[in-house]
Design a protein around this nucleic acid. Structure first.
Lengths: 149, 149
DNA sequence: CTCGTTGCAAATGGTTTGCACCGCC
DNA sequence: GGCGGTGCAAACCATTTGCAACGAG
C-alpha cells in the first residue's frame, strides 16, 4: 500500500527529470507514512535524527517541488504557517482553530463530492488538479478544555 | 444587500467589545464590496489613497482580528501569501496555480454540499465554523497562454 | 476620562538564495 | 563526467511588536 504510493511518487519524479536523492526519498517516505500533517519544522526535526546534516533549505526546496508536482498538498495552518499532506486520495480536513491540529476525515461519499466540486470549476473553463478542502472549527479536545475552564 | 453585511459585521464587533474605528470600517467595507480576493498589500495600497497615514500594521492586525471573529476567511495563495475574502455565504474557490488568481464559483448546490461536509466533521465531535474550500488547477486564460507558446 | 487602537519604525523569524562541494544518473 | 542537488550561512521580506500619541465610547 505504502509502497505503491512511494513507487508512484518516484515514477512521477523520474518523468519530470527530477533526480532521486536520499533526501527526497526520506521526505516523501515520511509524508506517506504519517498522516499527522507536519509542519516544515516537524519534518526537519524528525528526519535530521536519522539523517544528520539534513538542511532546512533542502526540506523547504523539496516540499515546494513536491507541491508543484501535485504529490503533496499544502494546508494553511491557523498559526500562520503551512502543514503538508501526501495527496494519495481526496479527503476532508477539519482544522482546529485553537490547537491548530488537522484531522483527516475519511468518508465514502467524499470522493464523489470532490469530483462534483471539480466539475463545477470546469463550467468556467477551469482545469482542476488537486483540492484543498478544510472545515475550520474547534476539535473535541479543545471544546472540553474550554468547558472545564 | 451590502449594507446588511456591513451592519452585521459592525454588530459582531460590538458584541465582542471591539471598538469601531474608521480603519476597521474602511477595511471591512472594502472586503465586502470587492470579491477580488485581495492580498494585504492590495488592500493597503487601495485604502491608503483615500485614507493617508494608514499603517500596514493596522491592516495586518485587523485582518487577523476579523479572521478570528469569522468575518473573513484567509485563502492560501500559491505564491506563498494569503488572500482575503469576506465570508458572506459559502462558495467554491478555484485557485489558478499559474497566475494565482482566485475565482469565485457560485452554485445553487454548494450550500447543501458545504452543510454536508460540516456535518461529516461533527461525527468526530468537531464543532465547525467556516469552510475553506479550494480547487487548484489552471484557469482558462492561463491554459490559452500556455497553448499559444 | 480611560483604555483600546493607531502609526511609525524597529525587530523578528520563517523562507529563500548564493555558492562551493558533492554524488546521482 | 556533467550537472542537478545539497548544506551552510547570509540575505530577504512579509508579518509582528513596542511605544508614544490619539480618539472612540
Amino acid at each position: 500500500m505504502t509502497n505503491k504510493h512511494y513507487d508512484n511518487a518516484m515514477k512521477r519524479l523520474k518523468e519530470n527529470n527530477v533526480r532521486i536523492t536520499p533526501q527526497r526519498q526520506i521526505i516523501l517516505k515520511y509524508l506517506i507514512e504519517n498522516d499527522n500533517h507536519p509542519t516544515v519544522e516537524t519534518i526537519f526535526n524528525v528526519l535530521d535524527k536519522t539523517f544528520p546534516n539534513l538542511s532546512m533549505a533542502t526540506v523547504y526546496n523539496n516540499l515546494r517541488l513536491f507541491k508543484k508536482l501535485n504529490l503533496i498538498i499544502e494546508l494553511p495552518s491557523v498559526d500562520s504557517g503551512y502543514r503538508y499532506d501526501f495527496y494519495d486520495h481526496p479527503h476532508l480536513h477539519a482544522a482546529c482553530d485553537i490547537c491548530n491540529k488537522i484531522i483527516d476525515i475519511d468518508d465514502p461519499e467524499f470522493a464523489e463530492i470532490e469530483k462534483n466540486l471539480k466539475d463545477k470549476t470546469r463550467t468556467v473553463g477551469f482545469k482542476p488538479t488537486v483540492s484543498s478542502i478544510s472545515i475550520h472549527g474547534i476539535c473535541k479536545e479543545c471544546q472540553e478544555k474550554l468547558a472545564n475552564q
